[in-house]
Design a protein around this nucleic acid. Structure first.
Lengths: 225, 225
DNA sequence: GGGCATATTGTCCGTCGAGCCAATATGCAA
DNA sequence: TTGCATATTGGCTCGACGGACAATATGCCC
């Protein structure tokens, strides 16, 4: 499948030249004169990357980058500009830009950057698709089931969960099983992996868990009991 | 505790001026004239960050950065230079540099960058210490125990592990329990968290696991059986 | 040969969770 | 009122695992 390159630049002749070059190289190229033009096309259905000038009429390149980040459009961005300084390049790269190239750019360099960007995008797409799938399942859980699920993936036993929520162990089992069905998980392990994809198990949670076990104290004891 | 700043610059007067400024700001400052001077001091026992010029006699700043990365000295690096172009700044940032500042730098900016760097370093130190602790425990496992451990944290049942290794289920239990004792883990969950810290559970492993469960097929079936 | 680590296997019992049978109460919507 | 979702609780069996009681075989070092 042909990867798409979203080219944002206010210079007509530049768009035409680079567009032609990239099409010859086998890419599908969509051009935009301003940042707003690209924003109007969101969400970008065609996978690929964005090649972006820094200085644009209206919204600047870095501003567009921030905008895309805030909207969750995790498409890789390659800056390609003639008007830039080091602070700008540093900021954009730290903000996650895939690369920062300078006009005039060597064709080979641009192609390489695009290839890297597209490769990373495919990975992101795969991951985010997975996460979305799990999240969709998670949305189906009732509030009570979510509570139980949270405690389960933190390693709590049914007994302890029952105590925390002030219900019987049997009820915990019911919610737990229901949650497992809805999440299409078949084991505790899959529950945990799902939780990690949902961001429910934060780094600090695992840190606390590790710290506990390294101290070789009984792990089941949660202070709230 | 006073954080340390390792300042690498071949300009004597610059080292003195910046060193004095940073000491006044409350930092412990160690200065080096060349990259080799800093490398000679590895490993850096005092926690903190490195402030590094790009153009240095002998080994350059970016070269020193690579060197530090290869040696696993994960100390945050702030580039501070007057001779730089965008490609260099992009490369170093993508290689993980904390920041890239330009001489002459505003004192406030430098301090802020150092604070960010030190903060991130503390986090890294904490994490790597934890990982080292787990790794030390893992080293104590016998080869057989490691095999079993790997399969266990991938969600395999004792039965399946027994079949894969062509031993009885009882033997798997023995190795499993032994491994749990040595790793000071008290549950499957803690085993998994330890494995994640050891890098044994790669992203692709979890991906495969997720994919399986999302397809709602029985999870236990591993093809090798 | 004796001691030690490693790998192998066995039984018995208790705990925990999965799976299936069931019921009751509340609140909301058609 | 009837129907549905949600939350609650009960009993029962079964599989998986942890813990404690063991034994046997191999290979290496002193």
């Amino acid at each position: 499948m042909t990867a798409a390159v979203h080219l944002v630049d206010d210079d007509d002749s530049f768009r035409k030249a680079v567009g032609r070059f990239l099409r010859t190289a086998g890419y599908r190229v969509l051009t935009y004169e301003t940042a707003a033009d690209l924003l109007a096309q969101l969400p970008l259905t065609v996978p690929g990357c964005v090649v972006l000038d820094v200085r644009l009429p209206g919204m600047s390149g870095p501003e567009l980058q921030q905008c895309l980040i805030e909207r969750g459009a995790d498409v890789p961005i390659i800056f390609l500009t003639g008007h830039a300084d080091i602070p700008v390049s540093v900021r954009t790269i730290k903000a996650g830009a895939e690369d920062f190239l300078i006009k005039p750019v060597e064709g080979k360099l641009l192609i390489e950057a695009i290839e890297r960007a597209i490769a990373s995008h495919r990975i992101d797409q795969g991951r985010s698709g997975e996460i979305a799938a799990v999240r969709a399942l998670f949305e189906q859980l009732t509030p009570r089931e979510r509570e139980v699920f949270q405690l389960v993936v933190h390693g709590k036993l049914n007994k302890q969960i029952a105590h925390e929520l002030d219900i019987t162990e049997r009820t915990v089992k019911a919610h737990r099983q229901s949650a497992m069905e809805k999440l299409k998980a078949h084991s505790l392990l899959e529950m945990v992996f799902a939780a990690e994809n949902l961001g429910i198990l934060s780094r600090s949670d695992r840190h606390a868990m590790l710290a506990r076990s390294l101290k070789e104290e009984p792990s089941g004891t949660n202070g709230s009991g």
